[in-house]
Amino acid sequence: MANKTEITFTSESTAKIADLAKLKVEKKEENYLAKQFNQTLEVIDGLNKLNTQNIPETSQVTGLKNVFREDVVDKKRSLTQKEALSNSKKVHNGFFVVKAVFDSES
């Protein structure tokens, strides 16, 4: 069911997507990935063979609705500060630490 895909990945668009996904892609990888994406898109484009006019989208299959919890504090799942930080590589006085991000006040 492979078709010629209308949308073609280039190394530039691949780099842009990598940036959006916060992934590092080496320059030399870009071309290879672009080719793979095009391969995938060729398959996906098979969807266009089906008429979906007036067909609603399904994003969930359960048919459930209005599933809520009551507004009560539930300490059963609470983590202590020590537990919360236990898997972090970098902590300081009870905080997680990241390299400086400059926000509004810069």
Partner: peptide, 17 residues
């Protein structure tokens, strides 16, 4: 691309159901 891919796929999903 959201409509072309994501939404389209979710519509065909309905066809399967």
């Amino acid at each position: 691309y959201h409509d072309k891919y994501y939404k389209k796929a979710q519509k065909v999903r309905t066809l399967f159901i």
